[in-house]
Design a protein around this nucleic acid. Structure first.
Lengths: 201, 201, 201, 201
DNA sequence: TATGAATGAGGGTTCATTCAT
DNA sequence: CATGAATGAACCCTCATTCAT
């Protein structure tokens, strides 16, 4: 039932999905749903909280176990990716209705969790810079902001099938670590324009 | 008035914003809105169509004028970035209520425009590969998918002010072209797992 | 201006026509209409009252001047027909929105006028029966009810052009006076069924 | 509930009746109506389509079973009259709000049905002329136009009760077949004006 | 548990009318 | 006289939720 609701939420958005549609999908009447759930909100809560808790566990686990900042980030991406693929509905809900959830008291734990996640990224990026693993001119917060949205995408890839999760994750890591420029293109591109040089310093 | 509505749409989402809220913000009654607009939909249309047309113009202009695939992409990012910052509301609307707009007849031009944009990216990435500018193992469609979502983010940066547009754009280009790894970190990262190696080769 | 409004009222119905449509047709804005009229109701009133007064004059004139009941009825039909053709809009309004006008205080004169008209018909039909001009078994009130609605129809004949007013009036008189059966059919039809015989006696 | 709505529609007109009035009459709130119906339109549709289908069946049945044109017309009038008296609300709706229904896509079947009905009348009148049953100078289309409006009236007779259906039907048939003039009155009426003579010959 | 009728607040929208300019 | 922005009440309809059966 939660799964059913989650699929509808993912397809049409949380707010755009009516309890009647959920009940229809379950083969019962809308009123009967309330023998199983207190409210539509509580269904959403069940889906989102179990998801976000797993993600947080992934992040905390990566930080606790991995050796270097780079390893932490790799592990975060890999383990989170597995979690995301198991919670496609939750992810789609967050993406489609974030403006709603982020302002509802009941879902206050979501912005909180995202803040913790951001902090982990920034910390690791900074550590990596200090260790000489990442470019010294990297702006940690900026980089996180640029990357985090990409990180939440893979679960929607069902639409663009033809890629395995491994391919998506691998491609992502390759791009963010090594960039898309070939060795030849990389040197040829220098010296960079002044604006870019300033911006990334 | 359109600006007012756009700001509300951006803040709370298009569907979640009521015409009464727009009217309140404008200091008039809800019925009075219809002296200025045919419908809520037409307000959204005005905001979104003017935005998407400018973006399309940016893309087409970049393709027409630039010399190499790398230059095209750079120009796309730079000019679009300016457009995005002038249409923050439109962008937020697309991100928050895409599941709605993408299914409404009146907004059918949106998916259409996105398809054109995708095609331009893929074409340029492929051309860059053939010219030896981009890594030969780059998967154009995958790369586009990964990047496009990042590309649409900067306009939300109002929330996280402290960065200039130049900084954001520069940072993005630096990452996608050169990656975040330093030359030292780049070699140190190997050997990778077999799955990743396959996916990125 | 009244004419313009009348045409719209006739086409789309009084209630279905908005003051904005009238203003559009007049080439001004809706607010400006109120420099010419107190209200939409007063436009309707002007159209309907002038019409109904002319009709009443026709009826009263026919009663005053004609010799026999048959002549009265013929004159009513003929003169009214001329009046109707000059007030097509008013007639269409009555037909389309009678349920509205008949309950509005401002238009209370309409049901009143119709009652006078009915009384004239019934009186003449009864007089004709007593004089041996009309069938003795004629039910005056029933006959009036059957005929009056037909009487109000011709003005809509613009739609079904191809007939002159004379043709319509002539056809109507021929039918109600002589029926549609030919002399042969008339005798062949007798004896009538018992139900019919009873009903018309 | 449909019956309730139908009565209100008949009394005040379809458009002039609000869903709140229907709900009030049913002793519930307006929103609760939508537990039973999709829309106000669908209530109207249910009332009108069941009516018009029965009428069409009457007409087709009369054509299929009756022997002569006169018998067909008699049967049409008799059977339709029964149908009309069972669908008073539908008839009143058509009369009051025809200008609305005739232009709404959902009710496109109404003009279509009326066209079929007209065709049946015209065909029968023409056949009757050829068979010598009806006057040779009868204009079929004109006659139909004159009669059809009368035909649709009886159902409103609730207002003017005191007549049985049989009386109304019998009276109507007597008039249209034999006219209202007595044999004496028929000859006395001549000579007619030239225009009328031309029109009815 | 399930039903299904009912709630009630709120959604977008219409429209005759007013009035300062 | 005309404008056009604004009114305000009413419109049809939606939907999460309740509750007697």
């Amino acid at each position: 039932m939660v799964v059913l609701a989650g699929e509808l939420f993912a397809q049409k958005g949380y707010r755009a999905t009516t309890v009647r549609e959920i009940a229809d999908a379950a083969g019962i009447l809308s009123g009967s749903l309330y023998h199983h759930f207190d409210s539509k909100e509580s269904i959403g809560d069940e889906i989102l909280s179990s998801f976000i808790n797993e993600v947080l566990a992934d992040y905390r686990g990566a930080v606790a176990s991995a050796s270097s900042p780079r390893a932490v980030i790799e592990q975060i991406v890999r383990s989170t990716s597995r979690t995301l693929s198991q919670h496609r509905a939750a992810l789609a809900m967050l993406q489609n209705d974030w403006s709603y959830f982020s302002t509802q008291p009941r879902f206050a734990y979501l912005p909180k969790a995202l803040r913790e996640i951001e902090q982990i990224w920034i910390t690791q990026l900074e550590l990596g810079k200090q260790a000489g693993l990442f470019r010294a001119d990297l702006d940690a917060k900026l980089t996180y902001r640029l990357l985090c949205d990409v990180l939440w995408i893979p679960a929607q890839w069902r639409r663009t099938s033809g890629y395995t999760t491994d391919q998506v994750v691998g491609g992502f890591l390759r791009i963010v670590f090594d960039g898309i420029a070939s060795p030849a293109g990389r040197t040829a591109a220098r010296p960079r324009t002044r604006a870019t040089a300033r911006a990334t310093r």
